[in-house]
């Protein structure tokens, strides 16, 4: 049994403690926005936030997460209103198949929360999620535009 705080709600789930957080969220909680890509922390499709930090959930046992850690999934990111990264992603038509983009958006929103003005090199080294469709040029442009938007909104 594990107690988790997911998107602002406490949930008790009956799972083996070695179950990766990804599968707890997908199969037990029923939130399928967070994707399975590789299962070994390589591709980033399973990225979510743990206390605001982008975390690859596919190889993270649920026992490593405590109830006082706030987990936010893609479903929680823009729950009240779309996150600026989601808005920019729509504006630039970033997604192709879209499968990796939820993880990409979680990685980017976490990066921008910690580094409001990332340089191009920062973005290139920090965002290591795999996209097989090859959306990287628009991802790069999207991060830069979202950073500008978020800075302007803060005024």
């Amino acid at each position: 049994m594990a107690r988790l705080n997911i998107n602002g709600k406490f949930l008790d789930v009956d799972v083996e403690e070695d179950t990766p957080l990804l599968w707890v969220i997908r199969d037990h909680v029923g939130l399928t926005g967070t994707k399975y890509g590789c299962g070994v922390g390589q591709c980033g499709a399973c990225t979510l936030h743990v206390d605001g930090v982008a975390t690859r959930s596919c190889a993270l046992p649920v026992s490593a997460v405590t109830a006082d850690q706030k987990i936010v999934t893609i479903e929680g990111l823009g729950a009240d209103k779309p996150h600026p990264v989601q808005e920019v992603w729509a504006e630039l038509d970033v997604a192709q198949c879209g499968y990796c983009q939820v993880g990409m958006i979680m990685a980017v929103s976490s990066l921008l929360a910690q580094n409001a003005k990332p340089s191009e090199d920062d973005i290139r080294s920090e965002i290591s999620n795999i996209c097989r469709c090859g959306t990287y040029p628009r991802v790069l442009a999207g991060v830069q535009l979202a950073a500008q938007r978020m800075a302007a909104n803060k005024g």
């Binding site: 999934t73 893609i74 479903e75 990111l77 823009g78 729509a90 997604a95």
Partner: peptide, 8 residues
Amino acid sequence: TRDKLNGS
């Protein structure tokens, strides 16, 4: 595009 960006 829309439902690709919010996990739905």
